[in-house]
């Protein structure tokens, strides 16, 4: 299990990186944390001719928190974001979800941007980006652009990113005031890819539910959101029957059967986790408000 040969590029700037990407096109692959990519290389399930190692690129290592959200640079490791106190204060969901990303040792190396660009439906951070309605900042030699999350994920391991583009950062917008969030997932072993996972955000205004939304891990092709506000709007959180979202969840998810669980079981898990997560998010919203 050794990787096939490749040409290694070590750009120092975004411009250099995008120039190389423009040059190598489909034969190039960006290496940041490599925690998903290198296993594929070692197993020779992928053998790109060029590896654009962006670990030395300046200006991609920042976490910026402001009134609009949390901007995470392409070289920010999961563990750095997980530990960042300002990011946590602004958007607790980040830490809630990051705690479920593989094992701590993997989080020390893997990047949040990388896991979003990888677009694995079993990834936690794409679901978080979806729930926050985030943005992907892509740079390219022929011009930079911002891609809304809804336009970014196209399918399992498939995004609208072009081969010549480098994701330099993702932006997680803040939730409205009064929002609580929660994240839960179930895996066969601690740290494995989730059989099903759910992120929830519930906004409480004047003591009643104003908005309730969910996004999912491992049970949808594309990390999208499910808005269940209609089911709970105007209810006091304590009075809400959070299980009432179950039919909506069941209709929304489209899990597949694999080695570790059947589609039906995953749907059940997603449904079960959904109401529990909503309840927890609502409870957190009340704590935030208090």
């Amino acid at each position: 299990m050794k990787p096939a040969p490749f040409v290694h590029h070590a750009p120092r700037t975004v411009d250099e990186a995008t120039a190389v990407l423009a040059d190598v096109g489909h034969d190039g692959k960006v290496l940041a944390g490599g925690q998903s990519l290198i296993p594929l290389l070692n197993m020779r399930l992928a053998s790109p001719g060029h590896l654009v190692d962006v670990n030395g690129v300046c200006g991609l290592s920042d976490i910026r928190v402001d009134g609009s959200g949390v901007r995470v640079g392409a070289l920010v490791r999961h563990a750095e974001l997980e530990r960042d106190p300002r990011a946590y204060a602004a958007l607790p969901l980040l830490r809630q979800a990051l705690a479920h990303v593989a094992h701590p040792v993997i989080r020390n190396r893997g990047t949040t941007v990388g896991s979003i660009a990888h677009a694995d439906a079993a990834g936690e951070m794409p679901a978080v980006l979806a729930l926050t309605g985030g943005l992907v900042e892509a740079a390219a030699a022929n011009g930079d652009r911002e891609v809304a999350v809804a336009d970014f994920f196209l399918g399992a391991l498939e995004t609208s990113l072009r081969p010549e583009e480098l994701v330099v950062a993702v932006r997680f917008p803040l939730f409205p005031p009064g929002t609580g969030t929660a994240f839960a997932e179930r895996a066969r072993r601690h740290g494995d890819y989730a059989l099903a996972g759910v992120a929830a955000a519930v906004t409480i205004v004047d003591g009643v539910v104003a908005r309730a939304r969910l996004s999912f891990v491992s049970v949808t092709d594309v990390p999208g959101t499910l808005d269940v506000t209609e089911e709970f709007a105007g209810l006091e959180p304590e009075a809400a029957h959070w299980r009432d979202c179950s039919d909506r969840v069941r209709a929304h998810v489209a899990p597949e059967t694999d080695l570790h669980a059947t589609a039906e079981y995953r749907a059940m898990l997603a449904t079960e986790l959904a109401w529990r997560t909503l309840a927890e998010a609502a409870s957190n919203a009340l704590t935030v408000a208090a």
Partner: peptide
Amino acid sequence: MDFLMPYAS
């Protein structure tokens, strides 16, 4: 990844 040898957890 898929042959699930138990971890300490």
